[in-house]
Design a protein around this nucleic acid. Sequence first.
DNA 1: CTACGATTCAAACATCTGTTTGAAACCAAT
DNA 2: ATTGGTTTCAAACAGATGTTTGAATCGTAG
Lengths: 209, 209
Amino acid sequence: MTDSTRQRILDTAEQLFADQGFHATTLRQITREAAVNLAAVNYHHGSKDALILAVFQRRLDELNSDRLARLEAVLNASDPPELEDVLEAFIYPALLLGTQSAGDGGRFMRLLMRAWAENATQLHGTIARQYSHVMRTFADAVSRALGTSPDNLRQQLDFLIGALTYTMAETRDDQVEHTARALIRFGCAGLRDSALAAIPRTSLKENIA
Amino acid sequence: MTDSTRQRILDTAEQLFADQGFHATTLRQITREAAVNLAAVNYHHGSKDALILAVFQRRLDELNSDRLARLEAVLNASDPPELEDVLEAFIYPALLLGTQSAGDGGRFMRLLMRAWAENATQLHGTIARQYSHVMRTFADAVSRALGTSPDNLRQQLDFLIGALTYTMAETRDDQVEHTARALIRFGCAGLRDSALAAIPRTSLKENIA
DNA sequence: CTACGATTCAAACATCTGTTTGAAACCAAT
DNA sequence: ATTGGTTTCAAACAGATGTTTGAATCGTAG
């Protein structure tokens, strides 16, 4: 039962962080709800900041490896991949993670947005570093699916990430399939149309006043 | 000079809230940077929570009325409006607000995301209520531009809001025009394609595994 | 000039925070 | 049964937080 305490702290902390934010959640609240002693957090994790980081690493590793595994499967199936399949490999694991991780829907993604909103010291940097690797890989796959260069793709992918992140928080378990399909379609259309705009330099006058 | 203090507190608080978050920003920090006495916050605004709300109302009213004014101008110009114009009326003021409000770029939208991430008690409800009005109006305009019913439009609009919110935080002043154009194009393509999908109920088998 | 309400100020208040401490309890190996 | 290392526990610590207080100061109307 040695790391049953460790695990219980991790689970309870994740839930409370998602519901109330990192700064607003106190160690006393965590330990009370987890039915462990107050000092257990510092004993097992060192500090509150380290606990936050630990909560994150667990889910983030899960998400990223799931994404990359699915992408690799897609790329192995067909050399120039289908855009829909690439986006699905990126979107679907994220929507799944939100629902299946902590029991209730969308909990973990609220956590991600909090991490980005609050300036947890090392946390933002760690996330960005992890994401930069995955982002590069996916940007590459998308550009191959579109048949264009991956140069101006970062912005459109940011649009997609924003839509995904914002959506995840309010997606219930039974809506995952439907939401994923809608978002994939939405993103594919946006990416394809933006790719068309990148090549010809004509007639973008009356699009904006 | 009576409300010079009030105003200075409001400005300084907005800046610090955006940079560090609501909970992490202390009243002592605000009052020190604003060069006013600590008790001035409670004297002029009542409490810290009331101050947060006040900071928000100021910018949110500005943003929403700007959006609605532009939308009305668009609707007056042509009865079935152009989709690009509707989206521009929604997107452009938001991107502008982020840059021109507090001097530095993207500051206010970071604030919005914080407000959503942290569970400021009344704050989330107030924002949602304000947004629900604007959202209904824009959903109506978009559905008229697309020629479809506004039923299943909420989800796609949420995609757009997510993309917009996520983007605003990292958009510099000189990129506003470019980013707005890219996001409008991205959103229009996604909305139009999704509208097509809503009518025919065929061939959506191999899009998702 | 005086008097009075509005505003500012330094100081203290009560409370909550993360962390540390040292003793107690536990649990397997000798 | 006894040892020794790991884990738990209640208690206390030092510091920071939002808020309150009562006197001092200011600006202005009588």
